[in-house]
Structure formats: structure tokens, C-alpha cells
């Protein structure tokens, strides 16, 4: 692992080049060959029919103004943030998307609140559970309408019943051991909690009875993030630089080595077409792998401007195929679409 990381240092240093240089680089890329148009096409070299070139050129000329994300097919679309000066978010840590309501919920850990946005990125409400939240970190909504919030400050999984205005912090245990909840997902009536103490993912029913543990036997630190996609649980091993894919019954189905393209894998997401997106917190970019785990391309860079990352902390896809990146350093969620 040591050698692995050392070999990637030059990439890290390069990724920290100045935003000014990055702009020049971006200009160079924009003047280069046409951008790939599908998730599968990105990063692949093949012959292109003349009519396709013409179509791409027309789209390029007639399309709306946009910010390119390097040589990737991803274009900056909008940012979820609090525009009121002096009331900006402080260290937002996660995003939850309610498909039914078509709303985004951003957990603003530094100001102990949750902000909701509509699908167009307009701020709707600011919720702080009667000022009772203590360093919220992640959240989901269960089918029964309860909101579940990981509160780091209480080391609790807290349920919020909006109708009854009831807030109930609860500590979690598995085999008698206290859990330190970190990341949270909801799937098929179960709450999936990443325990920072063990690095394992533990599934709880809504009564908070533990049902199953997803553990990595050969990971040094356990997992740092996970997603549930296609009835499989995808977990990210940070120092090991690999993804472990579990069947929902807990058996390991697959392991994918991420290799040199990533230095400090921090979050993962699986795209609609099965491509795997890895957020690299150190390089401030996203590395994309195909379904077989073959590296395809990377995009995004260090910076503070639109479309740039400072301290990205989580990535996830919304139900409309857009890639959402929570950046706690820049206090916003950047949304990219193809």
C-alpha cells in the first residue's frame, strides 16, 4: 500500500495545480476532440461517423453555456447551497434524495440543520428539529415517513417524526458492542449503518434490531463508505483501494481493485448504466470505472470556483441520473449532468 500510494504522488501534486493553470488546461481540452456522449463511451477510442461529428458540433454550438468538467462527459448543472451571505452552510456532509417528493436534503453539520431543495436547486426549507440536532452527519427517510439522522454529537441514530414533532435519539449496539454510526442508507425496510468503530455495515430493522452484518475480513480499516445498488451492497475499502461487493445475504460476490488512478478513495456511487464512480478526496477528483472494474477516466479538480472541489466528502446519483457531489470545504453540493 505504501508503494502504491507513493507511486501516485505526482498525480496528487499535479491535481493541486493552480486554478489558473486549470483554466488553461480546460481550454486545451475544450479545443481537443469531441466529448464522449455515453457513460460507456467515455474514455474509449473508436472511429466516429461524420454525421455524428456534425451532430456533436451542432450541439456544441447551439447548446447552453456550460462549464466543462475536464475531458469528461459531465457538465456542471447547478449547486445546492444557501445563497444568503453569512448564513451559508458549514461543512455539509451528506445528501439524501427523496424521489417521491423530488427533493434534495442536504445535511449541514456545522449549523446543525437540514436544508431541502427542489429538483431545480431552489431552497425550500431549513429544518433543525427545534434546534435539537447535534452535529448531524447523514440522513434517510423510511417508508413510514420517519426521518433518520446520524448525529455525531450524540453518537446516535435519531428518528424524527414530523407529524408528532417527536425527536428520539437512540444509540446502536451489535452483539452488545456500542456502534459509532457514520454513513446511512435505507433499502427495503432496513436501515444500513456504517459503524466507524469496526468499519462494518450493519443492517437494522426499523425497531433498531440488528439483522445482518457486512464485514470485510481482509480490510485493514474496514469500510469508509457504501451504497446499495442493484440489490447488492457496494462497500469501499479506503487504504486497501478496493471495492467489496456483497449480495444482500452478506456473502462477498466480488472484489475490485481500484489501482493507481485513486490515491485516497473516500466515497463511491454506481451510475445508472453500472459504471462505478470513486471520489478521491486527496486528488479532488472522481475516477470512473466500467462494470468490470476497468479504469476509464477521471474528472474534476481542486479549487473553489464552480465545478471545483475543495474537500469533497460524498458522491451519489439522484434518480434522474445526475451526479451529486457534497463538498464540505466549499459548503455546497455540486450537481453534474450528462
Amino acid at each position: 500500500m505504501l508503494k502504491h500510494r507513493t507511486a501516485r504522488l505526482n498525480d496528487v501534486v499535479r491535481s493541486r495545480q493552480s486554478p489558473g493553470r486549470a483554466i488553461q488546461e480546460r481550454a486545451r481540452v475544450l479545443s481537443a476532440s469531441p466529448q464522449p456522449c455515453s457513460e460507456e463511451g467515455a474514455g474509449r477510442h473508436h472511429s466516429v461517423a461524420p454525421w455524428l461529428i456534425l451532430a456533436v458540433l451542432l450541439l456544441w454550438i447551439c447548446g447552453p453555456a456550460r462549464v466543462s468538467a475536464d475531458d469528461s462527459p459531465w457538465q456542471w448543472t447547478m449547486a445546492l447551497k444557501q445563497n444568503l451571505l453569512k448564513d451559508s452552510m458549514i461543512m455539509p456532509t451528506s445528501l439524501y434524495i427523496d424521489e417521491e417528493k423530488e427533493q434534495y436534503y442536504v445535511v449541514d453539520s456545522g449549523r446543525n440543520r437540514i436544508l431541502s431543495f427542489n429538483r431545480d436547486g431552489e431552497l425550500l426549507t431549513i429544518f433543525n428539529a427545534g434546534r435539537s440536532l447535534d452535529t448531524p452527519f447523514d440522513m434517510v427517510r423510511s417508508d413510514d415517513g420517519l426521518i433518520w439522522i446520524v448525529e455525531k454529537g450524540r453518537n446516535s441514530l435519531t428518528s424524527v417524526n414530523l407529524k408528532e414533532k417527536a425527536v428520539q435519539p437512540m444509540t446502536l449496539r451489535f452483539d452488545g458492542a456500542l456502534l459509532y454510526p457514520d454513513r446511512l442508507e435505507y433499502h427495503d425496510g432496513l436501515l444500513y449503518v456504517l459503524d466507524k468503530m469496526t468499519g462494518d455495515v450493519v443492517a437494522f430493522d426499523l425497531g433498531l434490531t440488528p439483522r445482518k452484518r457486512y464485514a470485510c475480513s481482509d480490510c485493514v480499516e474496514g469500510f469508509i463508505d457504501f451504497r446499495i445498488h442493484g440489490d447488492r451492497l457496494w462497500a469501499l475499502d479506503n487504504p486497501g483501494g478496493k471495492i467489496v461487493v456483497f449480495a444482500m445475504d452478506g456473502t462477498v460476490e466480488e472484489r475490485m481493485d481500484l489501482g493507481d488512478p485513486v490515491t485516497y478513495p473516500y466515497s463511491l456511487a454506481v451510475g445508472p448504466a453500472g459504471y462505478i464512480y470513486i471520489l478521491d478526496r486527496q486528488k479532488r477528483n472522481i475516477a470512473v470505472y466500467d462494470k468490470t472494474g476497468t479504469y476509464k477516466y477521471s474528472f474534476l479538480r481542486y479549487g473553489f470556483a464552480r465545478g471545483e472541489m475543495y474537500y469533497p466528502t460524498e458522491i451519489r446519483f439522484d434518480p434522474w441520473g445526475r451526479l451529486c457531489i457534497t463538498d464540505e470545504g466549499n459548503a455546497r453540493v455540486e450537481v453534474f449532468s450528462r
Binding site: M91, T93, S109, T135, F137, K152, G153, R154, N155, Y180, K196, M197, T198, G199, D200, C219, V220, E221, G222
Partner: peptide, 16 residues
């Protein structure tokens, strides 16, 4: 201290 946003609490070969 471990109840903060970022911590060095990891499994780390059993005990961080």
C-alpha cells in the same frame, strides 16, 4: 472526541 465529524476512529487491524 470520537463524536466529532472527523475522527481517527477506524478498525485499523482491530484497534485504531
Amino acid at each position: 472526541e470520537m463524536m466529532r465529524i472527523h475522527s481517527h476512529l477506524t478498525r485499523q487491524d482491530g484497534n485504531s
